[in-house]
Computed example of a mutant assay.
Amino acid sequence: MAPEARDDLYLLYRGPLASCNYDCPYCPFAKRVDPPELLRADRADLERFAGWVEATTDRRLSVLFTPWGEGLTRSWYRDTIVRLSHLPHVARVAIQTNLAARTGWLSEANPQVAALWATYHPGQVTRDRFLGRCRELLGLGIRFSIGVVGLPEHHAEAVALRAALPPEVYLWINAAEGHVYTAEEEQRWTALDPLFGDSVRPHASLGLPCHAGETAVSVLGDGTVRRCHFIKTPIGNLYDGTWRAALQPRPCTNNLCDCHIGYIHLKPLHLRDVYADGLLERIPVAWPLPAQPRPAHR
């Protein structure tokens, strides 16, 4: 990916899909089943969005799909990622996934553009099976990061996963919502993910300048454009063109920002410099970091 340009636009797309094949106790959408009419609407919305991406060639676009549920078990997300990955004006297309679905379809995608933000959920899938998916992605040449929710009961699995992954694969740790970390706990998780400090405490954001609403936007299935997922006020619509005039510098109106897909756009944090062309799939540009601690097998 070339250096960021003035016409770059990051789009975080979320359609109505909310179903998931996992039942993680820390997720409100666990084992949710979407009715057929919602799935049809989600598919139609995604097709419309993909058409818009194809037609919008005056911008260099980067797309991250952030479904409430699991998208890659649905053929239309797989097909759309392949489709968008071959467009010359699309710099990146990525999706958040539990990596439960098959991966062979990615052989049809452009590996320079398609990427995955994957999360390992102990208790939902065996480590060996999950690592098998990782090996498939490595064989296909697809960029991906792996994450774990930083709950105490996940630590041993996270250590084992880090030891089993090749050094070039970034393992990130998300601070668990509602969990207060002791200094010792923070140190243990930071030994696995040197960037855990960005996640462990919410970032004060009120009044701070943010790329959200300027060069990054949130898009809903009906085309509603918001500055980010966490500020609900619409600023335009993708399909009537009002999004163009809406793009402008804005200070954050929330007191705190505690989600990675939000705070990476806060300008004072300079996290676009940290992730660069790995911003959407959550891969630091300088990974592996110098002197990265490598935990031993346990």
Rank of each mutant, 00 (worst) to 15 (best):
P3M: 09
E4F: 09
L9Q: 10
L12R: 04
Y13R: 04
Y13C: 02
R14E: 15
R14Q: 15
L17H: 15
S19R: 07
C20T: 09
P28I: 03
A44G: 07
L46H: 06
A50K: 03
A50E: 06
V53Y: 09
A55M: 09
R60G: 03
L64K: 09
P67D: 05
P67G: 09
R74M: 00
R74K: 12
V82L: 03
V90R: 14
R92D: 14
A100F: 14
A100E: 12
R102E: 13
G104Y: 06
W105Y: 09
L106R: 05
A109I: 05
W117T: 02
V125W: 06
T126H: 04
L137Y: 08
I146Y: 06
L161F: 13
P166V: 01
P166R: 06
I173C: 13
A175M: 13
A176C: 07
A176Q: 13
V180W: 00
E186V: 08
A191M: 04
P202Q: 08
S205P: 08
C210W: 06
T215M: 01
L220Q: 14
G221H: 10
T224E: 12
N237E: 07
L238W: 13
A245S: 13
A245D: 15
P251E: 01
I261F: 04
Y263I: 02
H265D: 01
L266G: 02
L266H: 05
L269R: 11
Y275H: 04
E281P: 01
A286L: 12
P290I: 03
Q292I: 02
A296H: 12
A296K: 11
